[in-house]
Simulated assay, not measured.
Amino acid sequence: MRILLIEDEAELAATIRTLLEREQYIVDWADCLSFAAEAARGGAHDLVILDRTLPDGDGLTLIPALRATNSGVPIIILSARNELTDRIAGLDEGADDYLAKPFAFQELLARIRAVRRRPGELHLDEVRIGELVFDMTFEEARVGELRLELPRRETCVLATLVRRRGRTVLRETLERAVYGFDDEVQSNTLDSHISRLRRKLADAGAGVEIHAIRGVGYLLRDSA
């Protein structure tokens, strides 16, 4: 899953980003409204964590633009502004949740899981394809009782393919899901991730295949 973190405190942002990346999330960081608006324009993010007090204005003013480009994206406000009127304003403006600073990181993770379980983009907790079971909330794959130990980027590839199972996923879509703004991407890097993922799925007896659509992208389907 790819998260857009909008936070102007560099030290706090670095800490949140490091912790989220340990949880297998891809994180892009923006430190102001203007950069965040540009980052969000492609609609590539699965979730937004939004501070309110930013150098160029109130983070709430960004919510309409976020909704315009990615209408179903969950938005969690993370702010030191914690008066009742502040929380009400954030939720009324369209945020899905409001978490006050200081906060416990485990609570932030729980709230991320909670907003992703709500009706919207994902309607199932688990998706089954062949013998593969993919937990959409925790982004974990298993075959039978075997949990597949996948690196973060391979997990992102599989999650993106599972969400669009039976449909061709463009290379550009996969790359946006897997790589952050700061990543240097070689032309064959995505293919390498997919090659390793194919091998692991086959070794586990997942009963699925990742089919290459030459010059376009990839498609996940039942191999039966």
Rank of each mutant, 00 (worst) to 15 (best):
G43Q: 08
G43A: 10
A44E: 14
H45V: 01
H45S: 13
H45G: 05
H45A: 09
D46G: 00
L47E: 12
V48K: 05
V48W: 03
V48M: 02
I49R: 05
L50Y: 01
L50D: 10
D51C: 03
R52Y: 03
R52C: 14
R52K: 08
R52N: 14
L54T: 12
L54Q: 10
L54H: 12
L54G: 11
P55W: 02
D56K: 10
G57R: 08
G57V: 01
G57D: 09
D58H: 11
D58T: 01
G59K: 09
G59L: 03
G59V: 04
L60T: 00
L60P: 11
L60F: 10
L60I: 11
T61I: 07
L62C: 11
I63Q: 00
P64T: 02
P64V: 07
P64Y: 04
A65V: 11
A65I: 12
A65N: 13
A65Q: 15
L66T: 08
R67F: 00
A68L: 13
A68W: 09
A68K: 15
A68G: 14
T69K: 04
T69E: 14
N70I: 00
S71R: 11
S71A: 15
G72P: 04
G72I: 01
G72T: 04
G72Q: 10
V73F: 03
P74D: 02
P74W: 01
P74E: 03
I75C: 08
I75H: 09
I75F: 09
I75A: 07
I76F: 09
I76W: 11
I76G: 02
I77Q: 06
I77A: 03
I77K: 01
L78E: 03
L78R: 10
L78K: 08
S79Q: 07
S79A: 07
A80Q: 15
A80F: 04
A80D: 15
R81N: 14
N82K: 09
N82C: 13
N82H: 07
E83I: 02
L84E: 15
T85Q: 15
D86W: 04
R87H: 05
R87A: 13
I88H: 08
A89M: 08
A89H: 05
A89N: 13
G90C: 06
G90H: 01
L91G: 05
L91V: 07
L91D: 13
D92C: 01
D92K: 15
D92F: 02
E93D: 01
G94Y: 06
G94L: 05
G94T: 11
G94R: 02
A95E: 00
A95K: 04
A95Y: 06
D96V: 03
D97A: 13
D97Y: 11
Y98H: 10
Y98S: 09
Y98C: 05
Y98M: 10
L99W: 12
L99Y: 09
A100L: 03
A100K: 07
K101Y: 05
P102K: 05
P102M: 03
P102T: 06
A104N: 11
A104M: 09
A104I: 11
A104Q: 12
F105Y: 07
F105M: 02
F105Q: 03
F105T: 03
Q106V: 10
Q106D: 12
Q106T: 04
E107Q: 13
E107H: 09
E107F: 06
L109A: 04
L109I: 15
A110M: 10
A110F: 00
R111A: 10
R111V: 06
R113G: 08
R113Y: 15
R113A: 12
A114N: 04
V115S: 05
V115Y: 08
